[in-house]
Nucleic acid binder design. Sequence first.
DNA 1: TTATATTATAGACTATAGTCTAAGACCGCG
DNA 2: CGCGGTCTTAGACTATAGTCTATAATATAA
Lengths: 209, 209
Amino acid sequence: MTTTNRQTQAEQTKQRLFDTALELFNKKGFDNVSVDEIVKQSNSSKGAFYGHFKSKYGIFIEKFKEIDSFYEEFVRTIPEEASFNEKILLLFEGQMDYLANILGKDLMRTVYISGLNDTDENFFANSERSLYRIVRGMIKEAIERGELQKDVDIQRLTWQITRCMRGTLYDWHAFGETFDLQKESREYIEVFMDGVMGRYGGERSGNRK
Amino acid sequence: MTTTNRQTQAEQTKQRLFDTALELFNKKGFDNVSVDEIVKQSNSSKGAFYGHFKSKYGIFIEKFKEIDSFYEEFVRTIPEEASFNEKILLLFEGQMDYLANILGKDLMRTVYISGLNDTDENFFANSERSLYRIVRGMIKEAIERGELQKDVDIQRLTWQITRCMRGTLYDWHAFGETFDLQKESREYIEVFMDGVMGRYGGERSGNRK
DNA sequence: TTATATTATAGACTATAGTCTAAGACCGCG
DNA sequence: CGCGGTCTTAGACTATAGTCTATAATATAA
């Protein structure tokens, strides 16, 4: 199955549309860029655009998916010996930093809007995302180390912990400029993790239960 | 400042648009109803529509605001003697029931989309909402009763507890049909409240700290 | 190599949310 | 009563996301 010339061309067209769109979005904001503008500046066409992307949102969603390689990189910087609780806190910190400073608020807003529109088949619900695999891994490790009880429902806890992210990120947009993402994120997950450790903490976690 | 005939007329037009729109939304779904269709079926016009509502979303947002009178009613059914923790759990249960069975998922979806679009001046961020006043009231009461420590940051805790609602409701849409709102809501807030009581619980709460 | 099938792209077209302006109806005031 | 001003509404108009169809270029198979 060798790559034909035509496929290469198509890939280049897609890349050109992608780069141009991102550049325009960053310069003028998602809402102030039209698809016509993107295709014109890419010397391309509507047909090409919608052949490569499902919608205008598709550009930002594709960019957003890069976050998974960030996660993979980032977890490697987390010290092996840190406790489960510390690891989760570090993950939140790193993630929020990446979202705010690399991807940006406008991109995240559109991704969250898509999550509400494509009510099925959206990225959040895909349990194979790196993020979910990483959190599941941390939970499994914590169980092995006796930090969490053996009978924790791993999948459920994964959804719950990542829901803390989604809730905080939603509020980041809903609450406007005054919202301090890092601070809010940390304070919130700290409380939640207290609850988690109180409920599911194993013998090695200092849990009194 | 007596109500003029003209104001009455306008109010009737608005009401007609409102009722017709809701009827159509419920019948066909928000995305499958056009504003043209609404105004035609209301024997009205675009000008009238946009004179009364800020956008197509405005209809559902206005309907959503009715939830505040529901909250006011509902809290009166919560037993005075219940603990802070129990009160919060009951509030969540009642709320989710109302949202799922009275307002409906489609309405909630559009309200949550609006929260992401009108990044300032949206309903969530308005701290005078009944919901927020009620939660603040519960927290204050819990402090008075010694269930929470005296130095709890009331406003912060209010935002955090209600963020549990927002996170869960976001997931309700993002995770499609398999998501059991009541179950997810309860399990999530239980963990969070464990964290809250562990951190901020007073002498009367059985907190060991 | 030629004929047939496939596919990427161009761009006209559609659907629809929201804007804008004019006009008519009603209001309050003299 | 009548006049100037104001509010409500009608509906044409604009902007724009997304669809659809035709075409040309390329791939494939004989």
